Amino acid sequence: MKKYTMETTVGIFVLAGLLCVAYLTVKLGKLDVLGGDRYPVTARFKDVTGLKSGAYVEMAGVRIGRVSGITLDTKDNMALVALDIDKGVRLTDDAIASIKTSGLIGDKFVKVSPGGSDDVLGPGGVITETEASVDLGDLIGKYVFGGVK
């Protein structure tokens, strides 16, 4: 009988350890298992050079979401950036999305500037006012070859 209680105790500890590892994997990997507290919004850009899935979305310097995916709209040849925005954040239909760089040569992120409208952009909405990223290589090339005035 004593053998079975020892095996049961070890089995419970192993199960508890596996549950802890699974929990930490989900939390540290920033995975949303049950849907999370975010809603999807799409932004249409002419150019998203350097932006990656998983990049941050910020408003007024505060992180409000993540980039969940980037696809190409072959009809308009525009990049569609899927954003997951925190549920507590209200975006208006005239909000402006820009691609910025953190630091001089840092990672790209999406900066959202609030608009002045009272109409709220709901789940599945599209941000049409966008600013593409500035390519440092293009700017240096224009300066070197005399394209900058």
Rank of each mutant, 00 (worst) to 15 (best):
S113W: 05
F109M: 07
I70A: 04
D119A: 15
R38V: 13
V120Q: 06
D119I: 15
S68K: 05
L34G: 08
G29E: 06
L18T: 11
L51Q: 02
V10Q: 08
G69K: 08
D37G: 11
G106E: 09
Y39G: 01
A22H: 12
D84T: 06
D84F: 04
V33I: 14
M6K: 15
I127W: 00
S98A: 14
I12H: 05
G125A: 04
L121R: 02
S113L: 12
D37Y: 10
D135K: 14
D86N: 11
V14R: 03
I85S: 01
I64R: 00
Y39P: 01
T49R: 07
K52P: 02
L72P: 02
V67A: 02
T74K: 15
D119Y: 10
G36W: 06
A132D: 14
V89M: 05
S102H: 11
L15V: 11
S133D: 13
V134Y: 05
G125C: 04
T42V: 13
V48W: 01
D84N: 12
G65I: 01
G115F: 03
G147V: 08
V110M: 03
V41Q: 01
L15F: 14
K108Q: 09
M78A: 12
L104G: 11
T92I: 04
T5A: 12
P123K: 10
A60I: 03
E129S: 15
S117V: 07
L91F: 02
R44L: 13
K46P: 07
D118F: 12
S53I: 08
I127R: 01
V112C: 01
L80A: 07
L24G: 08
G61R: 02
A60D: 14
V57R: 00
D93T: 14
K100Y: 07
V144S: 07
S98F: 03
T8L: 14
I85A: 02
V21Y: 12
G61F: 03
L72K: 10
V126F: 05
G65C: 04
V10M: 11
L51I: 06
Y4F: 14
